[in-house]
Amino acid sequence: MKTEKNRERTKRAARTARVDWRKEFQHNWPLYLLVLPSVIFAIIFCYIPMGGLMMAFQNYKPWLGIFGSEFVGLENFRQIFEFKESYQAIINTLIISVSKIVLGLVVPVIMALLLNEVKQLGLKKCIQTLVYLPHFLSWVTVAGMLRDILGMDGIVNACLKALGMEPIFFLGEAGMFRQLVILSDLWKGFGFGMIVYLAAISNIDQNLYEAAEMDGANKWQQTLYITLPGIMPMIIVMATLSLGNVLNAGFDQIFNLYSPLTYSTGDIIDTYVYRQSLVNGQYSFGTAVGLFKSGIGLLLTAVAYKLAYKFAGYRIF
């Protein structure tokens, strides 16, 4: 009897929900219509390819297609750690990306604090304009410049020769490749990374500085006890969000700078996936490595968002 009543209640609830939806739609149909094109694009170009990730569990052959290829379970994933190359690519990725993340956090904060001490507005504006610029250049352009500057007849080697040293083929030295990648990435991004900190600094209440000055605090103490704590929430947000990038070492950059000479230190997961699948034709293995990477990436990003929300109240939308 009781269950009968419950069932009746759920049925009624379902009916009212349906009516609600109809009402909602009658009122808000233009809104649904406006989202529709984006939904279609997201399904076709984002969600359908995700279905193709099934390949990672198959021995995919192009002529058999995704529904005809043999299912091999986790075999492809087991191989990731067996091949010396893929293992090395994971190590390289971690070293490069963690260095990039740490420097990409510390340097912009320091630069923003230093720039804040420049009181001539015109000069400040000029410096800002110049340091933001590299962010907008493509890695192809930057790679073109780097290859020229660091080439055997480039400006850097010209300096070395003038100092009586032997010229160095920088882009062919495996031992220097990571440092080169990390530094050129820093060059390209540090200015742009400053923006959020400069904005945070300008939001700090000016009365705090006046009060501190009354109390006899010098500039250094003001920076340490007012500015830095003032931008700390922003630093925390940026730090946690960068967690999602631990497996992104920068495909665009490395693909345009590396060569077989520097594979040992410079090959990262993304470039390895590219070579394995599109050059060597191992589609399933390449996809498995890619899925391994994006799976961990998803997990890390989820954790990052949770932490950013918990520590700084940051929400994506």
Partner: peptide, 16 residues
């Protein structure tokens, strides 16, 4: 937002 966090990767996207 999920499209921002996860994707099909190189080969599945290429095939689609």
């Amino acid at each position: 937002v999920f499209t921002m966090l996860f994707g099909g990767g190189l080969i599945p996207t290429y095939l689609v």
